[in-house]
């Protein structure tokens, strides 16, 4: 199956199917309070400048990306997360 695909792929990195981690975990609601913990796994969606990781990198689906950005913005409003560079 991989042998069939390989020749048709133009050079470059092997495209990797990304799966929405929130869908995999069947998360219904992304809670902004999860950013309370500095070691929260949710922090991986924010880069060191405090920006939200784009969907093309995280592989999140539209629905969960929307929820995630909402949660991040709420966490920012209450100073759990920075708006800009830490």
């Amino acid at each position: 199956m991989s042998e069939e695909r390989a020749p048709r792929r133009p050079r470059g990195r092997k495209p990797r199917r990304k799966v929405c981690a929130f869908c995999v975990d069947k998360i219904e609601y992304i809670d902004y309070k999860e950013f309370r913990d500095a070691n929260s796994r949710m922090r991986r969606y924010i880069n060191e400048r405090g920006k939200i990781m784009p969907r093309r990198m995280s592989g999140n689906c539209a629905k969960h990306q929307r929820q995630l950005s909402e949660a991040i913005k709420r966490a920012r409003a209450i100073a759990l997360l920075p708006y800009t560079a830490e």
Binding site: S2, R16, R17, V19, A62, K63, R66
Partner: peptide, 25 residues
């Protein structure tokens, strides 16, 4: 899906929540 994830460059399957709850929070 998990093993297929390595190869197939398919668009991620947007899983819909069965509960038809409103989005507004």
């Amino acid at each position: 899906e998990a093993p297929a994830a390595v190869e197939a460059p398919v668009a991620p399957a947007a899983e819909e929540a069965p509960a038809a709850a409103p989005e507004a929070t």
